[in-house]
């Protein structure tokens, strides 16, 4: 197990190297002088020259890439063109809201989707199944920002139950923190739940047809025990896999949700950086998000052994 984990960890290095190369090269794929592109339309000649030296744009491509990667490995992602502050500092500052939103919506998605998908498979073809599958198709089609506005209009404007927008750090108290997190996490959670519910249902349908399920029923086990201990555990691998794959969608969703709900997280940082063409920040944020995605999928891979002891490494 440990050897496998180590091997898998090592295998992520080439992927990350390619991601780094892609993210770094984006700037040079575009036509024109990168210094001119970065400095923007109103920049003067001196601004451009200053930027060129500051970002080492006068050095050869390979050398620049090595400088950037060398820095990134040590946690130095360069300096923001706009605010002149280290990119890593900006990222760390904005981390808490984004982590809270991601974990919150993931929790809501799993708590909603897994039981619903299981029940849909158990009563497949019935009314409950149709409702759940209908919810899944709609949830998959409604953009997260449209859903976000619908929820704000209902819960905040119409019923006045929750704050409209904004974010309160957990340090200011758990109550306000949860109040502000509820709607954004719910919007993003519902969209993600649609995907997970579909896979849960499909995976459970496969498992429910197995002989050992009939045996479990014949032994007189309770329905909940059959579904959870015998069913869900055997259906877990595809479910965990889709949670990992869906994480990419979740990251994209975070960027949008933070805009809808005015949450000062990494998503807002990205959007602001784009509007200001602050390329070091864009590079840094994309690298951090991609690294997270790769690590999450590494953990998903490693978790297979927990759910299915037949999978040995």
């Amino acid at each position: 197990m440990l050897a496998y984990a180590l091997r898998r960890l090592l295998s992520t290095i080439p992927v990350m190297a390619i991601v780094a190369l892609l993210v770094f090269s984006l700037l040079y794929l575009t036509p024109g002088d990168p210094a001119v592109v970065l400095a923007g339309e109103q920049a003067s000649e001196t601004d451009i020259a200053r930027l060129r030296t500051a970002m080492a744009l006068d050095k050869p491509y390979a050398e620049r890439f090595l400088i950037w990667v060398g820095g990134a490995v040590r946690g130095d992602l360069g300096v923001s063109v706009f605010s002149n502050r280290p990119v890593i500092e900006l990222i760390v500052q904005r981390l808490e809201p984004t982590v809270a939103l991601t974990l919150g919506s993931l929790l809501i998605a799993i708590v909603l989707a897994v039981p619903l998908g299981t029940l849909a498979a158990w009563r497949s073809g019935g009314a409950l199944d149709r409702i759940v599958m209908g919810f899944a198709v709609f949830g998959f089609s409604i953009p997260v920002f449209v859903l976000g506005y619908l929820l704000i209009i209902l819960f905040s404007v119409h019923w006045d139950l929750l704050p409209v927008q904004g974010y309160r750090p957990i340090a200011y108290g758990v109550g306000p923190f949860l109040e502000h997190l509820a709607l954004p996490a719910l919007s993003l959670g519902i969209v993600n739940a649609a995907l997970i519910a579909r896979i849960t249902r499909a995976s459970m349908l496969d498992v429910l047809n197995q002989d050992y399920m009939r045996t479990a029923r014949a032994k007189g086990l309770s329905t909940s025990r059959i579904l959870i201990r015998h069913g869900l555990r055997n259906a877990a691998v595809p479910i965990v896999t889709i949670i990992g794959i869906g994480f990419a969608m979740l990251i994209s969703g975070v960027v949008v949700t933070e805009t809808v709900f005015n949450i000062p997280g990494l998503g807002r940082l990205t959007v602001d950086a784009i509007l200001r063409r602050d390329y070091p920040v864009i590079q840094g944020v994309i690298l951090v998000f991609s690294l997270t995605y790769v690590v999450v999928n590494l953990l998903v891979d490693l978790s297979y052994g927990l759910f299915d002891p037949r999978i040995r490494y």
């Binding site: 990350m16 993210v23 998000f289 991609s290 790769v294």
Partner: peptide, 11 residues
């Protein structure tokens, strides 16, 4: 594939 599509497009 490891770069979230919205972010890649945005960049």
């Amino acid at each position: 594939m490891s770069i979230p599509s919205v972010l890649l497009a945005v960049a």
